[in-house]
């Protein structure tokens, strides 16, 4: 398993050195969220009501933006071939890269969400709920997204295609993420949506690497 963390460590170090990817994702998140009040009108009541949904959807789009690079650079520079000759099965290679994406992109996006919540007049009491559900739900974003990234590795129009393939898979995460926030703020029981959100993330951690590795293996032939 140590090869796993070696790989996660390298990807994180690369993310820090390259820098640009995270900044772009955060910037995109900010811009999308800022566009909404401009399009919908500055009705603060309306904004605060739709804020959790807007923040979640914009987070999904921002994460998608950076997903294309998860396997692409390793495929283009030949690293993927060498990774495949290592002691790790390709499934764990895919898992390590998805985990590195989660740490380097999804978590910072989730942590930025409350700041953007200010722009949308989100009530203060909702902040912990927002961040908690995002941290629990975003593993599914990175691990299911890895499937799309792997499938579109050699495809033309990769970037747009990922969005088409992956966004429908994010529907459960989105719905239960929002449901968990509403439950935390309202009278409903928090446990069911939060547990289901956790289950979806855990399922994604299994399904994502399996499917992504199968797709990578096919394209490495």
């Amino acid at each position: 398993m140590s090869g796993f963390f070696t790989l996660v460590g390298r990807d994180l170090r690369l993310a820090v050195r390259q820098g640009g990817a995270l900044g772009t994702a955060l910037g995109f998140y900010l811009v999308v969220v800022a566009m909404l009040p401009l399009g919908l009108g500055a009705d603060l009541k309306l904004l605060s009501r739709i804020a959790p949904g807007v923040l979640w959807i914009a987070l999904l789009l921002s994460a998608l933006l950076s997903l294309g690079r998860v396997f692409e650079s390793d495929y283009e520079d030949g690293s993927l071939d060498v990774l495949a000759t290592g002691p790790l099965p390709l499934e764990l290679v895919a898992a390590a890269k998805a985990l590195a994406h989660w740490i380097s992109t999804s978590v910072p996006l989730a942590l930025l969400a409350p700041v953007l919540g200010i722009l949308l007049n989100l009530e203060l009491v909702a902040y912990p709920a927002l961040v908690a559900t995002m941290l629990i739900g975003t593993p599914a974003v990175s691990f299911l997204g890895a499937i799309g990234a792997a499938l579109t590795l050699t495809a033309r129009r990769g970037g747009l295609l990922i969005a088409l393939l992956v966004l429908p898979l994010y529907v459960p995460t989105l719905i239960f993420g929002i449901a968990a926030i509403s439950a935390m703020l309202g009278p409903d029981d928090v446990a069911p949506p939060l547990l289901i959100l956790t289950a979806i993330s855990l399922g994604a951690i299994v399904l994502g690497p399996l499917a992504a590795a199968a797709a990578l293996r096919t394209q490495m032939q």
């Binding site: 429908p168 898979l169 529907v171 459960p172 719905i175 929002i178 449901a179 949506p193 289901i196 979806i200």
Partner: peptide, 14 residues
């Protein structure tokens, strides 16, 4: 096909 039942379930729930 793995995700479809989960999507269906979540849409029904929502």
């Amino acid at each position: 096909i793995v995700m479809l039942p989960i999507i269906k379930f979540s849409v029904d729930w929502g």
